Computed example of a mutant assay.
Amino acid sequence: MTTPPADTAAELADALTRAMRRIRRQTMHRLEPYGITPSQARALRTLAHGCDGGAAMRLSELAERLHIAPRSATTVVDALEEAGLVERTPDPADRRAVRVVLTAAGHSALERIVQVRHEVAQDYFGPVSRPDQHSMLQALRVAEEAFEPSRTAAAPGDAVR
């Protein structure tokens, strides 16, 4: 029985999947003492990047940016609000809508998240030379850019994050 030729693209996809699992697991482990889950960290980062000059983001927009159902976003925001990291405010443009804004404690938590993400990335990619890290990043950017048009053409439920 002969073995099929190596499928480099599939092997690369598998290696990326393993890397992301390890990075996510280590990040989750390091955020645990702060009481922050990966989904909460992602929501806080999204709020920080989406809030121009401290403006609030609608809950529906947060759900859309996170690619999750509005109910799931509500659950994440409930936990963040209970921890004092965000607060809900009425949207002056639409009384039915709710906006979410980071609190001072949320900004502090975001700083810890950024630090943990940096440390985990350094631990994982530290053994890889700077030029190789740059090459990997460039290759992934090219792949992502080429993939993006096909992703928007896919059915709404097809995109997986």
Results as ranks from 00 to 15, higher is better:
residue 1 M to C: 11
residue 2 T to D: 08
residue 4 P to A: 15
residue 5 P to D: 10
residue 9 A to M: 06
residue 10 A to D: 06
residue 16 L to Q: 05
residue 16 L to R: 08
residue 17 T to A: 09
residue 17 T to W: 03
residue 19 A to D: 05
residue 20 M to P: 03
residue 20 M to N: 15
residue 22 R to D: 09
residue 23 I to L: 14
residue 24 R to N: 10
residue 27 T to P: 12
residue 27 T to D: 01
residue 29 H to R: 13
residue 31 L to S: 03
residue 34 Y to E: 11
residue 36 I to C: 02
residue 39 S to T: 13
residue 41 A to W: 03
residue 42 R to D: 07
residue 43 A to F: 01
residue 43 A to Y: 05
residue 43 A to N: 03
residue 48 A to T: 01
residue 49 H to T: 15
residue 56 A to L: 08
residue 57 M to E: 03
residue 59 L to W: 02
residue 62 L to E: 02
residue 63 A to S: 07
residue 67 H to Q: 14
residue 71 R to H: 10
residue 72 S to E: 09
residue 73 A to Q: 00
residue 74 T to I: 14
residue 76 V to C: 11
residue 78 D to E: 12
residue 79 A to T: 09
residue 81 E to Q: 11
residue 82 E to W: 13
residue 85 L to K: 07
residue 88 R to H: 04
residue 88 R to C: 03
residue 88 R to N: 00
residue 89 T to P: 00
residue 90 P to S: 04
residue 92 P to Q: 04
residue 94 D to P: 08
residue 97 A to F: 08
residue 99 R to Q: 12
residue 100 V to G: 00
residue 101 V to H: 00
residue 102 L to C: 00
residue 103 T to C: 00
residue 104 A to N: 14
residue 106 G to R: 06
residue 106 G to S: 02
residue 107 H to F: 09
residue 108 S to E: 14
residue 110 L to V: 02
residue 112 R to G: 02
residue 112 R to Y: 07
residue 114 V to M: 08
residue 118 H to E: 10
residue 118 H to S: 09
residue 120 V to Q: 02
residue 121 A to Y: 02
residue 121 A to W: 04
residue 122 Q to P: 06
residue 124 Y to F: 14
residue 125 F to H: 08
residue 126 G to Y: 05
residue 127 P to Q: 08
residue 127 P to K: 13
residue 128 V to I: 15
residue 129 S to K: 03
residue 132 D to K: 09
residue 135 S to H: 11
residue 136 M to S: 10
residue 137 L to E: 10
residue 140 L to G: 12
residue 141 R to M: 10
residue 142 V to C: 11
residue 145 E to G: 07
residue 153 A to Q: 15
residue 155 A to S: 05
residue 156 P to E: 03
residue 157 G to S: 06
